[in-house]
Nucleic acid binder design. Structure first.
Lengths: 240, 240
DNA sequence: AGCGATCTTTGCTCCGGCGCAAATTCCCCG
DNA sequence: CGGGGAATTTGCGCCGGAGCAAAGATCGCT
């Protein structure tokens, strides 16, 4: 089990307001674990025996209904706290986390949570903030799905992904991990067919550039316009 | 400003794990405020200068988009903590809270939050749990809107309302505060027209009993079936 | 008791996007 | 370098439910 250097994590929100010595102590209790692309960090319904901090990589968090319907809840990027089910008094993980690319996370035993927040109150504040902003995001998503057309929702989803995990490339902004049309469909509450059609239409307009599990935003500005409800791009439909 | 008796609140989750003396001290810092039906406790976008505990009544929490689209985020029942924006490091309230019936709440200044959680760590834990379960609910709602037909969503919404604020009456379970078709539409991401049609169909099947801003579930069991995707009730459509 | 405002019901039409099916492209792996 | 499987694209038809319009039903108020 590798020990982690403080410098890697010192300026993450979770460690803000802690002295170097305290940071070291926290780190001493954690294990660092590698996850290969496609492997799961924890599974929906499993005992929530650890909580995590993602050091490197990207995770896809998904929920499956009893009927087998899958939904992508969100993506986790490096620096984020996740799997804090125990902190919310849940005994089991409510979703599955899968590594979208090879990733590294720190893991603490859930059982330490109570003791840690008693000792470091800023930890609780940090967790509260994490969960709070997650709640805001999720509520925003409800409103989006309720009130917007599919095309706007897809535009929003891509912009959010780009903001969270965008990498500048010559052609524009590339989403920094493999993501399929199916994934986007599951994020926006539609079908992969519709997503594919929309992306094709956008590609022919020069808004985006696609590929297998790969998306580059070429004109974020115009996408933003679409997301806000400007006239939609014509998705090829019956006609002359 | 009325002072509040400890016995009214002692067994709420927020006060769990505190000694009577500590409870009294917390209460001493709070003001009790009455809100008449239809008045707002706080408005979306306003400075988040207080956080609250609902003592009596029901609140509707709603968000409005810049384009004027409204969505009912949730209903707050007595005993719940709300308006804890500050605790999540937000300076402004993200939504509006309106009294659905005459209500009473305790209010603390947001500025006390940091001091209070430092002194009473269980408060932070309690808030974390509140926000956490709110997050779970909201995620469940995303999945519902994404994967279910309108009729199932309405069934789910009614069952949830009944569980949270149901009152047993002769005819079945009545939702204990005035709620319009429009409200239900805003909870389920549909239109009041569609909600009205569905409720009419259900009423003629004896599943529910409607009225102006009033709904009674007569057959929660069958509704549960609908919510889970059993064959839908035929909403009258063109035909022989 | 009467009036206006609000809420609810219901008919009709239209269309966005889903379901289904099939072809095509791309990538991984042997 | 050649399968084979996964991901993607695209055509076609249908239908759930939104949009629009208008007529009832109730409530609160004066």
């Amino acid at each position: 089990m590798a020990s982690v250097d403080r410098s890697l994590v010192a300026n993450l929100p979770m460690f803000a307001g802690l002295s170097p010595a305290e940071q070291d102590e926290l780190l001493r209790e954690a294990r660092s674990i590698r996850y290969t692309k496609g492997s799961s960090v924890f599974d929906q319904g499993a005992q929530a025996d650890r909580f995590f901090l993602l050091l490197h990589g990207h995770l896809r968090v998904e929920k499956t209904t009893p009927q087998g319907q899958q939904t992508v809840v969100r993506y986790v990027s490096a620096g984020e706290l996740f799997g804090v089910a125990q902190a919310m008094n849940m005994t089991h993980y409510p979703a599955t986390s899968v590594a979208a690319v090879d990733s590294i996370a720190l893991a603490w035993p859930s059982s330490s949570w109570q003791r840690l927040i008693a000792k470091y109150p800023t930890l609780a504040a940090s967790a509260l903030q994490t969960v709070g902003s997650r709640l805001q995001d999720t509520q925003a998503r409800v409103i989006e799905i309720s009130n917007e057309q599919v095309e706007q929702r897809v535009a929003h989803a891509l912009l959010r992904l780009a903001k969270q995990a965008g990498k500048k490339v010559d052609a524009g902004i590339e989403i920094d991990f493999p993501i399929s049309r199916q994934d986007i469909a599951e994020m926006t509450g539609t079908t992969l067919h519709t997503v594919s059609r929309i992306l094709s239409a956008w590609e022919s307009e020069g808004l985006v550039e696609g590929g297998r599990q790969r998306i580059v935003l070429r004109d974020a500005h115009r996408l933003q316009g679409l997301a806000e409800g400007e006239e939609a791009i014509q998705v090829r439909r019956r006609g002359p």
